[in-house]
Design a protein around this nucleic acid. Structure first.
Length: 422
DNA sequence: TCTGGGGTCCTAGGACCC
DNA sequence: TCTGGGGTCCTAGGACCC
């Protein structure tokens, strides 16, 4: 009998911030997205104040002040570091671990003698050793484990761990769950399910499979089977290699100068090429997109995208910048005020298994490019990002630079920002 | 009067996730 | 002044092949 557990950190980013500011215990905490744009994490106190997920920060500024909400810009180096500490602990304690996201992991507990005891032990150890509270849901499929996790979070009497046992308990939990809260049912499908009278997870589970297959594709059918106890999603122990990589940002201010846009796109191309090499991969094409603000209908709107082939697979930053700027020329239009741009790398494959191409440079040139990039990456790892960089991106105080007024220190990933004791 | 069958690859759009 | 960033998968339709 298979048994899955879902370990989910409670209010992860807010918990991370509070970890280094213990005086914030019991106080509402929110964490903002890049550019200090909207709320992406809330402590339970902040949820109780009615601050919704995704709330635009500027609209809530007065409420934040009035209610003494501690507001943080996002600090991903900190969250990423705490996340990997937790994942390491899980890997030590559970037979099989799938790191699903920065704050969630599935465990395979099939064959574990006392899974509940193990989960309580995991919860206690993560809290004691890392300082982050987690909730754990157990069930016979991943989708049901997600559902069990919601119960563990919502009903504190379970002590943060809830085992959804097959039978009446499972049925009751499905009936008590709104269909839109099921993992895999998004807002669109929810609306259509409501329209045909399926409002709870149980209603959905009992719909004819053929209808679900037709209206929601095999993905929806898989969700339905999982709710009914048939496991369709297995535990992925090793992370799959990426098929695409993206670096995109909203700008601090609107940008209409082509030169500024070129700077932004260049810096995103540099970042995404770094990611590509860190994965040991190469890309075959580059896509660039630009867009004006979504939420201001009074401004002229434009969003454009263009894809440029790289000729042969490469991870060489100058080639990627060059292709990205050509793509930008194709999709940029004069006279619009842009709010966001991004650079995506497509057609990824391991550098070690590369296809030989007629468009390949001669081997000596490829080797030269490779050692140049290795030297660049090594210097930036050793001395910090930006130690060696491209001239076009160094201009200070550009409108496209991100706003981050309330970032907490990089407590655990920067020697200069370690917390001081005493 | 009337024009096959079978396949691949690519892209755009839509849906979902955290 | 002001609304995030980074991914995946599925499907339909078009181009192209024999």
């Amino acid at each position: 009998m298979p048994l899955f557990a879902l370990v989910d950190c409670n209010n992860f980013y807010a918990s991370c911030e509070r970890l280094f500011r213990p005086e914030l215990k019991g106080r509402p905490v929110v964490v903002l997205s890049n550019n200090d744009g909207c709320v992406i994490a809330r402590s339970s106190e902040a949820k109780a104040l009615g601050i919704p997920m995704g709330a635009p920060a500027f609209q809530w500024e007065r409420r934040f002040r009035a209610s003494g909400v501690a507001v943080f810009s996002s600090n991903f180096p900190l969250y990423g570091d705490l996340s990997s500490r937790i994942m390491t602990l899980l890997a030590d304690m559970a037979p099989g671990v799938e790191v699903y996201s920065i704050d969630e992991a599935f465990l395979d507990l099939s064959g574990v003698a006392d899974p509940m005891a193990l989960c309580h032990a995991i919860r206690e150890r993560v809290l004691r050793w890392v300082g982050i509270p987690v909730s754990i849901g157990l069930a016979r499929t991943k989708t049901l484990a997600k559902l069990a996790n919601r119960v563990a979070k919502k009903q504190p009497e379970h002590g943060g761990v809830f085992n959804l046992e097959q039978g009446r308990a499972e049925e009751a939990a499905l009936q008590a769950t709104e269909v839109g809260d099921v993992w895999g049912i998004g807002p669109r499908h929810q609306k259509r399910l409501w329209a045909c009278g399926a409002r709870t997870a149980l209603d959905f589970a009992r719909l004819p499979g053929a209808w679900v297959r037709r209206e929601m594709s095999v993905v929806g059918l898989c969700t339905q089977l999982e709710l009914n106890g048939t496991s369709c999603l297995s535990l992925e122990r090793a992370p799959a290699a990426h098929k695409s990589l993206l670096c995109s940002r909203s700008f601090g201010r609107l940008v209409s100068e082509p030169e500024h846009l070129r700077e932004a796109v260049t810096s995103y191309a540099v970042r995404v090429a770094e990611k590509l090499r860190r994965e040991g991969a190469e890309a075959t094409s580059v896509q660039v997109f630009v867009s004006t603000p979504r939420h201001r209908e009074n401004l002229p709107q434009h969003s454009g995208a263009a894809t440029m082939a790289l000729g042969a697979a490469t991870a060489h930053t100058p080639l990627i910048i060059e292709a990205a700027l050509r793509a930008l020329d194709q999709c940029f239009r004069m006279g619009f005020e842009y709010q966001k741009a991004g650079v995506m790398l497509l057609g990824l494959a391991p550098a070690s298994a590369r296809q030989i191409s007629l468009l390949d440079l001669d081997p000596a040139e490829r080797l030269r490019q490779k050692s140049l990039m290795s030297a660049l990456d090594a210097a930036n790892r050793r001395f910090g990002r930006g130690a060696l960089r491209y001239a076009i991106t160094t201009a200070p105080d550009r409108p496209w630079h991100m706003r981050q007024l309330r970032r907490s220190p990089r407590y655990t990933t920067s020697w200069d920002e370690l917390p001081r004791v005493g």
